[in-house]
Amino acid sequence: MIGQSNDSEEWGQMQNLIKTVTFSLALTLVGGCSYFSVYKRDLPQGNLVTQEMVEQLRPGMSRDQVQYVMGNPLLRGPFDDDQWDYVFRLDEAYAGVKQRRVTLTFANDRLVNIEASGDMEADMELSPDLDPGPGVEPAGAETLPGVSPTPAPGSEPDASGEQI
């Protein structure tokens, strides 16, 4: 009889151990599944640089002309303003990282050198941000019926129709 109670105790402990190991294994497998992972989204950073933009650049262009084509540079040389860097990096959620870089060098306020790196010809598809985000009133937005916009204080027109 004494031997039987020890056997049943050992069997109960073995069952608890099997349950614990099975539960731990199941938890590990479920935790490792990509189906249950955190949502990721594409993360674009920097200036979007395209092949068409780079093709428009010509040595001898002024800084204003370059800025019209490329936009404001992401980086400027810290000690002189003769080097502009345009960097675009797209960290795709479930793929790799794509990066493009264009370095422009100026002398006497004229473009003298263009260095491009990265795959400029590859199409980088940027998905629109569909998150609700903060509400921004579009230009020309209508006001609520029966509500007229109130002018800022001190901007009431006088009798001649001019703002004061």
Rank of each mutant, 00 (worst) to 15 (best):
E121L: 06
G133L: 10
A139C: 04
P149G: 10
A139Q: 09
P138N: 11
E121T: 09
P138H: 04
P134F: 07
P151D: 11
L144Y: 05
L130V: 04
E125V: 08
G135Q: 08
V136Y: 03
E137Q: 08
A122G: 02
S148Q: 12
P138L: 11
E125Q: 08
E125H: 06
E125K: 06
S127M: 06
P145E: 14
L130W: 03
T143I: 08
V147N: 09
T150Q: 15
E121C: 01
M124W: 02
V136M: 08
E142I: 04
D123E: 12
P145S: 12
D129C: 12
A141E: 13
T143H: 14
P149L: 15
A152F: 06
V136R: 04
V147R: 14
L126E: 08
L130H: 04
G133M: 07
A152L: 14
P138A: 11
P128F: 05
S127I: 01
A152M: 08
E125W: 07
P151C: 07
P134I: 14
S148D: 13
D129P: 00
A139H: 04
V147C: 10
A122K: 03
P132K: 04
T150N: 10
D123V: 14
M124R: 00
G146K: 08
P128N: 13
P145I: 03
P151A: 14
P132H: 09
E137Y: 02
P134E: 07
E125P: 00
T150H: 06
L126S: 02
A141I: 02
D131I: 01
A122R: 05
A152W: 04
V136I: 15
V147K: 14
E142L: 13
P149T: 14
L130Y: 03
D131S: 11
S148N: 10
M124Y: 01
L126M: 08
V136C: 15
A152C: 05
L144W: 05
S148L: 11
V147S: 13
L144V: 03
G133Y: 01
P151V: 04
M124V: 08
L126T: 02
P132Y: 05
V147W: 10
M124H: 00
E125L: 10
D131A: 11
T150G: 05
E137L: 12
S127G: 12
A152Y: 08
P149C: 15
P149E: 06
A122V: 07
A152H: 08
T150P: 00
A152V: 01
D129N: 14
A122H: 03
G135M: 13
T150M: 13
S127L: 08
P151Y: 02
G140S: 05
P138T: 15
E142K: 10
A139M: 04
L144D: 06
M124S: 01
P145H: 07
V147F: 09
S148A: 12
S127Y: 11
E121N: 09
A139D: 09
G135L: 15
G146T: 01
M124N: 00
S127T: 02
A141Y: 03
S127P: 00
G140M: 09
E137R: 12
G133V: 01
T143G: 09
M124G: 00
G133E: 07
S148P: 00
L126I: 13
D129K: 01
V136P: 00
D131E: 11
D123A: 15
